[in-house]
Nucleic acid binder design. Structure first.
Lengths: 207, 207
DNA sequence: GTAGTTCTGTACTGAGTTGTCAAGAAGGGC
DNA sequence: GCCCTTCTTGACAACTCAGTACAGAACTAC
């Protein structure tokens, strides 16, 4: 009974996310989003209620993808849990991809976690963004902690270590790699950091 | 033979730094800087050549302060080196203060390392900022590595560990704490992360 | 005290920004 | 095939921003 939307909502949000990650929130104008998505201003305002609305929805989409990216990558049997953690740490060197089948962003600052970037830039003055970013962190932290527990059950990590503490630490390191990557360090250097972190994981004592 | 400046250059740069750290680069207007520093536009342009110039000089000042803050805090005899590392990690929970005698910023995103914040926000499109930020990182990394070596000499850290790798990892964790802090986590949670990191430092085997 | 130089504040310009609006286009129900 | 609803497009007005220019103030040297 009415004209249907001619654009794919997710596709638009992806393009907007890429733009926000590349230029930051305040560095991105509505015209930039318009150009990146191909949508006119009017459509943008009608569909997302402006720049801030686009950001919130893009972050919500990002959050939703975390359930299919990191969470799936970390879930699995106890046996390979330690190796899954290892792989996850190493993949963090290349940043957080826009989507599973999309290559990571060319420059490292744009490859950093979307939620982290937005939280650092505007989280202090934007509670909604801060909360969304924290949600992103929490969901991955839970997945990492579960993977740590799996590795503990398999005897690969010291059973006395607190899995939640360890998960927080690992995620903190991964977010730190994003920052160090933004300084312009080579992937090799970042890999070295990730490997050092992995090497320090507490192994069972009776080894 | 001419009218002297009526403002203190360092004071102005400090105020500008606070503003940049609170609102980000693109979120800060020249008028904001003017209001924060009390300087008129004309004086700002004459003394610093505009917003970008203010940023570069503020970052240079930040860099200079690193030599008196972290570097001095980490330097010292081999004996207390491990404890100095411990203290440094724990202080990172409160962020990087504007100056030694100034309390840390009220909200955590504004307390994050100035260089890191700027690198993440505009480093990708601003090579000068990226380089300055990297300089900041390097000088502290060197100081941390030296402190690690001191702790190794004192038998508190595994002598087989690579001090440079460990320093990079520790600094990555500290930068990660900035990010996690921006999510709104409590200082207690950040402290827990810092303590977990410290606990994982490789101790000598013959203990 | 005066001249000369530099600093300070403000007004101005042009570009860029956001959010709105109205007119036209496109598609589904009947 | 017609009508109605919704989407889309582009233009518009109000505003903010960065950077410049100019006039006045302050200070020093003589």
């Amino acid at each position: 009974m009415a004209r249907p939307r001619s654009f794919d909502r997710d596709h638009v949000l992806h393009a907007a996310e890429r733009q926000f990650r590349a230029s930051g929130y305040n560095g991105t104008s509505v015209d930039d989003i318009s150009a990146a998505t191909g949508l006119g201003r009017g459509s943008l305002y009608a569909a997302f209620d402006g720049k801030h609305g686009v950001l919130l929805e893009a972050m919500a989409g990002y959050f939703a993808r975390l359930g299919q990216g990191p969470r799936k990558a970390l879930a699995g049997p106890d046996e390979g849990a330690l190796e899954r953690l290892h792989g996850y740490l190493l993949r963090a060197v290349h940043g957080v991809p826009l989507a599973a089948d999309v290559p990571p962003a060319p420059d490292r600052a744009a490859a950093a976690c979307f939620a982290a970037k937005m939280a650092l830039e505007i989280g202090a003055s934007d509670p909604e963004v801060e909360r969304l970013a924290n949600d992103c962190f929490s969901v991955v932290a839970t997945a990492v902690a579960e993977c740590v527990r799996a590795a503990q059950r398999n005897g690969d990590i010291d059973p006395d270590a607190d899995p939640d503490d360890l998960a927080y630490l690992l995620l903190t390191i991964i977010r730190g790699i994003d920052v160090v990557g933004a300084y312009g360090h080579s992937p090799a250097r970042l890999t070295s950091i990730a490997e050092s972190a992995f090497a320090l994981l507490p192994r069972p004592r009776h080894r």
